[in-house]
């Protein structure tokens, strides 16, 4: 240990007297600047802690305040969705997602995954109700990224959005993955059949076009 501590490169660091942020001269490496940005962010979130001394608490138990707010936003969004106010629902879900992703980094990531996957899946649904297929597809993908297994709805929603946009090959591949993850989910199977039917139709049509072209020539 002594050997490692004897010597290190002194970095050209400074301290902003007002904000207490650690700074480096502009000539320093990109990695150092990125690291300092992360450090200052972490410092800011440590400063918001209400415990004394200000050290991040262990991941469990979680501060219940934020969880309650997120649940509230989600329920509010669901209410709006049920009443058909999709735009309002989108706003609620968006706030909820911002809040869930804004959790301090030392809080359990499993919890974040759970919350975020639900919120993204719901936002995808609201987008789909407004026929914003592109945004719906992106949100559903984010939901799946947060929670891969046991998230059949999100798998289905992205598949549906891709289908609606006519991206049949992508939809086929995506729903195939979904079926691998979720097993024989009824809705996914139905969607896959629909995609396959559309693909067949498309290839038939292309063949017909080629034939027609050949006849003309």
């Amino acid at each position: 240990m002594a050997a490692t501590e004897e010597y290190f490169d002194l970095l050209p660091l400074g301290l902003d007297p007002a904000t207490k942020a650690v700074t480096a001269p502009s000539g320093a490496s990109k990695a150092l600047h990125a690291e300092l940005a992360a450090l200052n962010n972490l410092h800011r979130s440590i400063l918001t802690l209400e415990v004394s001394p200000q050290i991040p608490p262990p991941p469990i138990p979680v501060n219940p305040k934020r969880s309650a707010q997120i649940t509230k936003l989600k329920d509010g969004g669901n209410d709006f969705y049920r009443k058909g106010k999709h735009g309002e629902a989108l706003k609620m879900y968006h706030l909820g997602i911002t809040m869930a992703l804004g959790r301090p980094l030392w809080e359990p990531q499993g919890l974040v995954r759970e919350e975020v996957s639900q919120l993204f899946a719901n936002r995808a649904q609201a987008h789909m109700a407004l026929q914003n297929w592109a945004e719906g597809a992106v949100d559903a993908e984010a939901s799946v990224e947060a929670k891969r297994a046991g998230n059949a709805k999100a798998w289905w929603r992205r598949g549906k959005c891709l289908l609606e946009m006519g991206r049949l090959d992508e939809a086929h591949e995506w729903v195939g993955h979904g079926l691998e993850m979720e097993g024989e989910e009824q809705e996914l199977l139905a969607l896959q059949q629909e995609v396959v039917a559309r693909l067949e139709k498309k290839s038939q049509r292309e063949e017909a076009v080629i034939k027609a072209g050949g006849e003309k020539a």
């Binding site: 301290l15 207490k20 650690v22 992360a38 450090l39 972490l42 410092h43 440590i46 400063l47 200000q54």
Partner: peptide, 13 residues
């Protein structure tokens, strides 16, 4: 002086 919070954050990083 370097505030303690900064040092703690640095150790956590």
């Amino acid at each position: 002086k370097v505030p303690e919070g900064v040092i703690r954050a640095a150790l956590l990083r």
